[in-house]
């Protein structure tokens, strides 16, 4: 019986070695180790053994059973592993095939406007809007620019009637906001503006501005400078130099323009900056006392600053765009670069 057992083990191991799949393996397990399997069959003969032999044969049979069980599980794991590998191998794909992307792009002017909004919202500004078709009063009169004021020459205006026009600047939003609200105020107003300039590389009859206004007690020209320096660095890089240059606007006094060091030559002087090393980016100043009076504020008690910047100009500088017409031609090959 001992020999039978040993032979059984040998046969089982041989079969096991040859089995190629999990089904075969299961069959073999049933054949050798199942309830009606060969091992059970052999052990039925135990009854005929002497009491001395029984324990040793029993022990041997147990050992063989355990060994075989172990071998079977081992083989099962191996086969499963093998199957998995084969499956994965079959599932190979070419990962270098390029994707087909359909992605839209925001207009560069939107991107710049969003950036400006983000900077000023971070500085505590609220974003407001106003109408594009405006009254002469809001666009000029209330901004200390009466009829026949020489400053009106600089802004060739599209008129609809004698009193209604296409706004030439976003500044009327200042007046509308101040009329409605009490200080303190910190607002920016982005939007479309119009001037009757014929179209060329640097002119467009329609373009975009962002107006800024801060009103409070004891606002200073230094605060204006500090605010706009932060803006210039955020917009054009931390190492960008900026300067404040005296200028004239009817609705601010003192007035200034802000220049940044030339983006192309970094101040050395080149064609883009007309060899000055500087590029003008915005106009600004302290709100003129007449403007404050026009909206019913007392210039002895409150004051403030205002600024206005051209979105197209900033986009052209920042993205190195040399022709303003590109913004309104809407060629997808242009738009897709942003």
């Amino acid at each position: 019986m001992r020999e039978e057992l040993i032979l059984l083990k040998q046969r089982a191991l041989q079969n096991l070695a040859q089995s190629q799949n999990l089904d075969d393996l299961n069959e073999l397990r049933v054949k050798f180790l199942g309830k009606k399997g060969e091992l059970t069959q052999i052990l039925r003969g135990m009854a005929g053994l002497s009491p001395e032999e029984r324990p040793t044969i029993g022990k041997l049979a147990n050992e063989i059973k355990e060994d075989l069980e172990r071998e079977f599980s081992q083989k099962t794991i191996e086969l499963k592993q093998q199957l998995k590998s084969q499956k994965l191998e079959k599932e190979w794909i070419d990962v270098t095939i390029p994707s087909k992307i359909v992605l839209g792009h925001k207009h560069p002017l939107t991107l710049i406007m969003d950036e400006i909004k983000e900077i000023f919202v971070g500085l505590g500004y609220e974003v407001v809007e106003g109408p594009e078709i405006e009254l002469d009063y809001y666009n000029f009169e209330a901004l200390n620019t009466p009829k026949d004021h020489p400053a009106r020459d600089i802004q060739d205006t599209f008129y609809i009637t004698d009193e209604i026009l296409l706004r030439t600047q976003t500044s009327p939003v200042q007046i509308r906001t101040m009329e409605k609200r009490k200080p303190p105020l910190k607002i920016i107003a982005p939007g479309r503006v119009y001037r009757s300039d014929a179209v060329d590389a640097t002119h467009s009859p329609m373009f975009h501005q962002v107006e800024g206004l801060t009103i409070g007690e004891d606002i200073t020209m230094s605060d204006l400078k500090g605010t706009l320096e932060i803006f210039a660095r955020e917009m054009f890089g931390q190492d960008r130099k900026s300067r404040f240059r005296p200028h004239y606007f009817p609705f601010t006094e003192p007035s200034a323009e802000m220049d940044i060091s030339c983006i192309a030559c970094h101040g050395e002087g080149c064609r883009i900056c007309k060899y000055t090393g500087w590029l003008e980016i915005l106009g600004c100043g302290m709100v003129h006392p007449n403007v404050l009076e026009n909206v019913g504020y007392d210039p002895e008690r409150v004051n403030g600053f205002a600024f206005g910047l051209g979105i197209e100009r900033i986009a052209m500088l920042k993205y190195d765009i040399n022709d303003m017409r590109l913004f309104f031609e809407n060629n997808l090959r242009f738009l897709e670069q942003f």
Partner: peptide, 9 residues
């Protein structure tokens, strides 16, 4: 001119 930010409210 110094570069400052508005104080107050």
């Amino acid at each position: 001119l110094p570069a400052t930010l508005p104080q107050g409210d």
